[in-house]
Design a protein around this nucleic acid. Sequence first.
DNA 1: CGGCGGTCCTGTCAGC
DNA 2: TGCTGACAGGACCGCC
Length: 278
Amino acid sequence: MPELPEVETIMQAMRSAMEGRMFTNVWQGRDTLRIPIPADLPEKLCGRICARIMRRGKYILIFLDDGRGLALHLGMSGRIILTEGARRSLQKHDHLRFDLSGDMEVVFHDPRRFGMIFEIAETGWAQHKAFAAMGVEPFSDEFDGALLWRLLQKRKGPVKTVLLDQRLVAGIGNIYACEALFEAGVSPFKPACAVTGPEAEALAAAIRNVLKKAIAAGGSSLRDYRQADGALGYFQHGFSVYDREGSACPCGGPGGSHAVMRVTQGGRSTFYCPVKQV
DNA sequence: CGGCGGTCCTGTCAGC
DNA sequence: TGCTGACAGGACCGCC
């Protein structure tokens, strides 16, 4: 569920709520996630200060004042719920709860249990296997049309499917791959290696633009996703094609009114405009 | 190594 | 109302 904009929104809320506070209690549920939650988290966290929180791809990284840290991934249905000054009653699918000084409570909630929580270290975390092969951050200085073009050149699969590969560009998921391809006017079926330089330029700009607008909207709430304070994101109202099969396409291209189409690529839905994305 | 399909889970919704 | 199947913001694994 959460892609870069949703993870960024949640990470920023966690940063405001947690940085500088001390972990005072850690509770773990019994259900296992994809990777078992480390059993020794309470002793590792309690008494430590949350020093710094950041995002890499779709992961949230939490660093402690002793050089250790935690990586969180929300999978498809994971949520973080921040509550200050009140105790949230335990709910089904709550897997982990942190209490921090100043009466702050942080809950990791994930019905489908595709999420992950594992330990990292401040020194060398980037060499962890989850991050070692991870691609460029779309908001980094090095990400531009020329780099995207070089990356796409190496791949023969459809550009839509390739954009979902976190080893190329980190943080893009199904929603924003569809939206960026629409904005750039690139066909999702085009082999990645056939994307031209100018198309890659437009696509890189579209990726940044779509992600930036989605972050400003607090992410996209389709089903599970909420911001950390429970608020809905509202970028779903800004979708051009995602989840809009059969609706009138907003491209305003030639041929008059036409509908947004849906196909399956690599087992995932792709939404696109048959007129603009040729 | 790239590409593809299956799998991990639970919840929700459409259709009968 | 109840059952069934399809589908969902992701990523890993094993096979060619």
